[in-house]
């Protein structure tokens, strides 16, 4: 079976663990518990008729990308860069994470998760900011809510498809 390492990165409290829990266990907790080090879980997905095992590394968030332990990111086939749509700084830190991930692995496949979309009005300027950064970096962007579950499955499916596509062209 094909397995791929996928890392979740982003500032602290943007909802990395919540997305991870929603996707793996389909549950959400209101209480915030900071991740120490890293949390690992496996998720077997069926993507376009093919099985793919994602080994998910939910990493500890910090103030910005400098807090990420680089060795956790090594060998990752893909990564999800998460921001909290209600916190502008976490969106503006996206380019730093993207640069860090590509520095460690130039072929890494990325997806941007603009999380906590349920807390924002449809016309909020942070949405536009996130779209602008995603377009500039040419990276797929998904607006998600770990709380309601909105688009969470789609987020991982999008990355999984990219990983399999890359496998075909490998």
């Amino acid at each position: 079976m094909i397995q791929r390492k996928v890392c979740l990165v982003g500032d602290f409290a943007v909802g990395k663990t919540s997305l991870f829990s929603r996707f793996v266990y389909n549950r959400f907790s209101e209480s915030y518990m900071t991740t120490i080090g890293v949390r690992l879980q496996r998720k077997v997905m069926l993507v376009e008729g093919q099985e793919l095992t994602l080994i998910l590394w939910d990493t500890e968030g910090g103030q910005d990308s400098t807090a990420v332990k680089r060795t956790y990111l090594g060998g990752a086939g893909g990564a999800i860069v998460v921001c909290d749509l209600t916190r502008e700084s976490s969106i503006r830190h996206w380019p730093d994470y993207i640069q860090l991930l590509r520095q460690i692995n130039p072929t890494i496949l990325l997806t941007l998760a603009a999380n906590k979309v349920d807390l924002l009005s449809p016309t909020h300027p942070h949405r536009t900011l996130a779209q602008q950064i995603a377009q500039e970096a040419k990276i797929p962007l998904i607006f998600t809510s770990a709380n309601t579950g909105e688009q969470v499955e789609n987020l991982f499916q999008t990355l999984a498809k990219e990983l399999l596509r890359a496998e075909v062209f490998h």
Binding site: K5, G37, R42, K69, T71, Y72
Partner: peptide
């Protein structure tokens, strides 16, 4: 086994960093 392998690797990284 795959998670244990990953976790051992993570522990090693954590201790080192």
């Amino acid at each position: 086994a795959d998670l244990i392998g990953g976790m051992l690797s993570a522990i090693r990284s954590y201790v080192q960093e």
